[in-house]
């Protein structure tokens, strides 16, 4: 198809393949952010509130892991999920689930590190009150997470931005299979390699628009929530 349609035409005509790609991108990245939140928020809160030997090192490591190279994560997850790897029996390689796993690994340190910082700052403010209320460790963590919820939305958005933007990890573990594991970013990589630069740029603009819309939604939710809860 030497004269394929432009990205704008695809969007305007409601091209089902394009929407399937957009849907998969959102499914993978949002699932990864959700899983990473389930792991990263409790982990970050735990590090914020616990004193243990080597804690400073763990914090430095966590902050450094925010910059994990996606291609390295992709390779590691590839080796783990491969039939010849330790988790091969699950048969996850080259599936959307594998992409979720890879992005979860990428995003978890971001959410954990930002949660740690947020919760630690809030803990300094709340420590006396919560201690005076004789609250147990779990009660403290829950109270801090709840009261930090608006700042944590920013952490989730940072994680989502990272997940939605990366191609290095998911192209390795997903395989960029048409109609199955092809996302916005892997499609852009493919169109670039096919030399269809206008379509690649167009898809890039679609991706950026989606990221902006997700951020705008989250931001307005945050604003509305803050007005109610201060």
């Amino acid at each position: 198809m030497p004269d394929g349609p432009s990205a704008l035409q695809l969007v305007l005509s409601g091209d089902p393949a394009l929407f399937a790609i957009v849907r998969l991108s959102l499914y993978v990245s949002l699932s990864a952010v959700a899983l990473a939140a389930l792991i990263g928020i409790p982990l970050g809160a735990w590090i914020a509130l616990t004193r243990f030997p080597g804690r400073q090192g763990v914090i430095v490591l966590l902050n450094a892991l925010m910059g994990l190279p996606p291609v390295v994560v992709g390779l590691a997850v590839y080796l783990a999920l491969s039939r010849s790897g330790p988790l091969g029996a699950f048969g996850l390689l080259f599936t959307p689930s594998a992409m979720i796993v890879a992005q979860t690994v990428l995003v978890t340190p971001i959410i954990a590190a930002l949660t740690r910082q947020t919760i630690e700052d809030l803990w300094i403010e709340y420590r006396d009150e919560l201690t005076a209320m004789n609250l147990g460790p779990l009660g403290r963590v829950m109270a801090l997470i709840w009261d930090a919820r608006f700042s944590l939305v920013t952490a989730l958005l940072a994680g989502f931005g990272r997940a939605a933007a990366e191609v290095g990890a998911i192209i390795i573990v997903g395989g960029n299979i048409e109609g199955f594991t092809r996302t916005m970013t892997t499609a852009i990589a493919l169109e670039t390699s096919k030399g269809d630069l206008p379509l690649a740029v167009g898809l890039g603009l679609v991706l950026i628009s989606i990221v902006i819309v997700v951020n705008a939604l989250a931001w307005s939710m945050r604003r509305a929530g803050e007005r109610l809860a201060g």
Binding site: L35, L38, I39, L43, F90, L92, P96, T104
Partner: peptide, 30 residues
Amino acid sequence: MSMLTRRLLIAATAALAFASHAVAQDKSIV
């Protein structure tokens, strides 16, 4: 990595595997 995190990871992997097995029921090859 904490014990809890590792458990969560394994649980998440298992859940994903379960989900993708459901998908893998239809006929497909790689």
